[in-house]
Design a protein around this nucleic acid. Structure first.
Lengths: 163, 163
DNA sequence: CTAGGTGCAAATCGTTTGCGGTGAT
DNA sequence: ATCACCGCAAACGATTTGCACCTAG
């Protein structure tokens, strides 16, 4: 399913357009170095970074970028439907590329970790509820907050996702 | 089911404690004039006001109150579990008294109106999903965004809610 | 070449907080 | 009396924006 080419290319600095860069081009965005950078960071992110984190990761690759640009770009990407803005509490917005498919989140209240999941039954139920109320469903937001019981199948200590 | 007494009482200014004032007293909060006022406004609200709106409504009843106090009180009530903080987008937090029972929201994307609803099947499903992922469910957030089809059976004017 | 992007710093906006005075218990 | 509350204004943290310069198309 993944059509992305090898992330490493012969010519040192440009491992060919990232997933998200390609989307940007498709939608006719002018691709500057900064945007390419942010697109790359987002493409490679397995978690849901906030602006500060995006800025940190982008600066690490090329320090010639300002937070203001990250804010502007992220907003642009949101308008183009390339990323979705999320609010997991904690004041700052976090971003989620839309090309990974529709999903919801379960936030581990103890660790702050975010687990993604899909659920067909929920999709159906959501639509049914909306219709029952006389609406057609445009969008939904579902977040579960949970705690792993002590005797649970021990979360693999692998650090990923969430802050 | 509603145990509230008549909202009008003989002694001019104090139509007996509001629903929420009673809860405050139960939980041992020192009841000042301002808190009584905010409790009243919240008790009478059929919608989900933000701080600015609460402040506006409270000031209308007695101008000797400041926004800072509204912020402080609303936060206190949240800690005591008397109201819940909500985020329907738009930057400001909105507040929802918990004594109206557990419910979720459907936001009319055209009008911004908020419709409350409950759904037992969803509760069950949410718990099931959390368990499937190895968590016990602590909380959830469900918001549906919908649009009323032109030819819709015009929402029964039963419920209010929304701004 | 030119519309649009960018960095920087100042400005906004919702919300919090320090402080001196006030009021509920 | 005491300790928590209140109003005011300054402080804050996230995000936006005005301006002068710079770059992709």
């Amino acid at each position: 399913m993944d059509t992305s080419a090898a992330p490493t290319s012969p010519n040192g600095q440009r491992p060919d357009p990232s997933r998200i860069e390609r989307l940007c081009i498709e939608r006719g965005l002018k691709m500057t170095g900064q945007r390419r950078l942010i697109a790359r960071v987002l493409s490679e992110a397995e978690d849901h970074p906030d602006v500060e984190e995006l800025y940190r990761r982008a600066s690490a690759l090329d320090s010639r970028i300002s937070v203001a640009t990250v804010y502007r770009t992220v907003r642009l990407l949101e308008e183009k439907g390339i990323v979705e803005r999320r609010d997991f509490g904690g004041g700052r917005a976090r971003f989620d590329p839309t090309d990974r498919g529709h999903h919801h989140h379960l936030i581990d209240v103890d660790t702050g970790k975010v687990i993604e999941f899909e659920d067909a039954e929920f999709e159906r139920l959501a639509r049914a509820i909306a219709e029952r109320l006389g609406f057609s469903l445009i969008g939904q937001r579902l977040e579960l907050f949970g705690r792993r019981p002590e005797d649970a199948p021990a979360a693999r200590p692998g650090r990923k996702s969430g802050r």
